[in-house]
Computed example of a mutant assay.
Amino acid sequence: MGLINMNVWNRAAIAMLCWDLANNEDKLWIKWIHAYYLKGHNESSWMIRKIMHAKEIVDQVKLKEGKGMVKQIYDYLRGEQTKPKWKCLMFKNAASPKAIFTLWILLNKKLETVDRLAK
């Protein structure tokens, strides 16, 4: 349907945190992780381990500085996909939620029309 895949988006957000750890040491949470987990060699939490495992993704993606870094990683992980042509009909208009839902049902050929009800 052209919606965001939340599993892939989550992996992209975690990969961005890994990129932040490698490149930006001016943030407080990054300094804390470097001091407590990386240099202290303490037992790390599941969150830190997940961020560290995202290094493979960060190494593969060529990021451009600026905004939209999670989107850049998301687009890389998702690969080439064409956007549905009908997406602008559903999501970029001022229609009520009922009209959007009805259009969605119509596009999936599940709308109870007179001829379908006759069957």
Rank of each mutant, 00 (worst) to 15 (best):
I4K: 04
A22V: 00
M1V: 05
E25D: 15
A12H: 01
S45T: 14
C18Q: 13
V8G: 01
P97K: 04
C18H: 04
V58N: 09
I105Q: 10
E56Y: 04
A99Y: 11
K62S: 12
L117W: 05
S96P: 05
L21D: 00
K31A: 07
E43G: 02
A99G: 08
D59S: 09
N42E: 14
I105P: 09
H34L: 08
A22H: 07
D20E: 13
V58I: 04
G79S: 02
K67W: 03
A35M: 10
Q81V: 12
L63K: 02
K62D: 13
V61Q: 01
S45L: 01
I100H: 02
W32V: 12
K31H: 09
K39L: 12
D59I: 05
L28Y: 12
W46N: 15
R78P: 08
L117H: 11
L106Q: 05
R78K: 14
V114N: 14
M1P: 07
Y76K: 04
E43N: 15
N24S: 11
A15M: 00
T113C: 04
A118R: 11
C18P: 00
I30E: 10
L38Y: 05
A15V: 00
I51L: 07
M6A: 12
A99H: 12
K31T: 05
T102S: 13
L38P: 00
L89R: 06
Q72K: 03
Y76D: 03
M90R: 10
V61A: 04
M69V: 00
T82S: 14
N108V: 00
A94L: 14
A13D: 08
L111A: 03
T102D: 15
L89C: 07
W9M: 06
L77T: 04
Y74V: 04
L17S: 06
G68R: 00
E43R: 03
V114E: 13
V114Q: 15
I57D: 04
V70E: 12
K87S: 13
N93W: 14
I33K: 10
